[in-house]
């Protein structure tokens, strides 16, 4: 049908729009010029990648690379991993607790709790960072990784909550009751019945929470104080008056490759599952 053709072409155009900037970014990451460019080709290079492991002497020889603080960059990345390492489990815990309260606790306060727990997802990210900063400062905790963690958890916990809630609503409450009726303690019933049922949802929301924590810029910028994360450090490079160094393109390309690989693996796994059925 004709309208189907138009829709297909439109979809392809949309995908092209989504991917084109990413492809340009990859191309520029191999171009030997800073700031990155796709219009002037100055020769193929991998130095924007090698930046992360090349010896210091080589680093000092390059006029662009020597202005970058590699140690700081890697330190900030380490900070991000540390932050995500706490944010992910904490968000899963809060999200799980929230999901259980919202689906299994029938009370008049339930509607209010919905609003309160979902409000961080609805609020502008900058506001969350700012309020975490101000609140913890009032309790005597200075801005830093701790406030970043608290600010991020505030809204990231909402994602696991929504995912787990959808899953919990599909699990009949009778399953937990049946386990109790057969003599299982509440803890055993939870660990043996509810948790395995939620496991796939927990896994996928852990991935989402990890990505959200790693990429978060808006909230983190407000809460970070003097510390830095991967995202704020990347963001800071934009302020370079000569334009950002193509090292960012190299990092971006690495992220794209990892993402594509993960998404492909996921899709293939799903297909195999469907075939097995």
């Amino acid at each position: 049908m004709k309208s189907d053709r138009i829709l297909s072409i439109y979809t392809l155009a949309f995908l092209a729009f989504m991917f084109a900037p990413l492809l340009l970014m990859i191309v520029a990451s191999f171009n030997n010029i800073s700031p990155p460019s796709v219009t002037e080709w100055h020769g193929f290079t991998t130095k924007w990648y090698r930046f992360f492991w090349m010896p210091d002497s080589q680093l000092a020889a390059d006029p662009v690379l020597r202005t970058l603080d590699r140690g700081r960059f890697i330190g900030c990345f380490g900070n991000s991993m540390f932050v995500a390492g706490i944010v992910v489990p904490l968000s899963l815990l809060l999200g799980l607790a929230g999901a259980i309260m919202l689906t299994r606790w029938s009370s008049k306060a339930n509607g209010l709790l919905w609003w309160v727990l979902l409000s961080p997802i609805l609020a502008p990210g900058v506001v969350l960072g700012l309020s975490a900063l101000v609140f913890w400062a009032r309790l005597g905790v200075g801005a830093g990784l701790y406030t970043i963690i608290m600010a991020q958890v505030t809204f990231i916990a909402g994602y696991p909550m929504l995912v787990l809630m959808a899953r919990l609503q599909r699990q009949p409450i009778e399953l937990e009751e049946a386990a109790r009726d057969l003599g299982a303690s509440p803890l055993r019933s939870f660990l043996r019945i509810t948790l395995p049922f939620l496991a796939p949802a927990l896994f996928s929301s852990a991935v989402v929470a990890f990505l959200a924590s790693m990429e978060n810029y808006n909230t983190t910028m407000f809460a970070k104080g003097g510390s830095c994360t991967f995202a704020t450090e990347i963001g800071a490079m934009a302020r370079n008056p000569n334009g950002h160094p193509p090292v960012i393109n190299a990092v971006g390309t690495a992220i794209i490759v990892i993402t594509v690989a993960a998404a492909l693996a996921h899709a293939l796994m799903k297909r195999r599952e469907e075939k097995a059925k």
Binding site: M18, F19, L22, G243, I255, I256, A263
Partner: peptide
């Protein structure tokens, strides 16, 4: 897959991708 990949890529990178344009 085509939708998830750009969705999952770090927000800042999607922004930087535009600077070359």
């Amino acid at each position: 897959l085509g939708l998830i990949i750009p969705y999952a890529i770090v927000e800042l990178m999607r922004i930087y991708a535009w600077t070359t344009i």
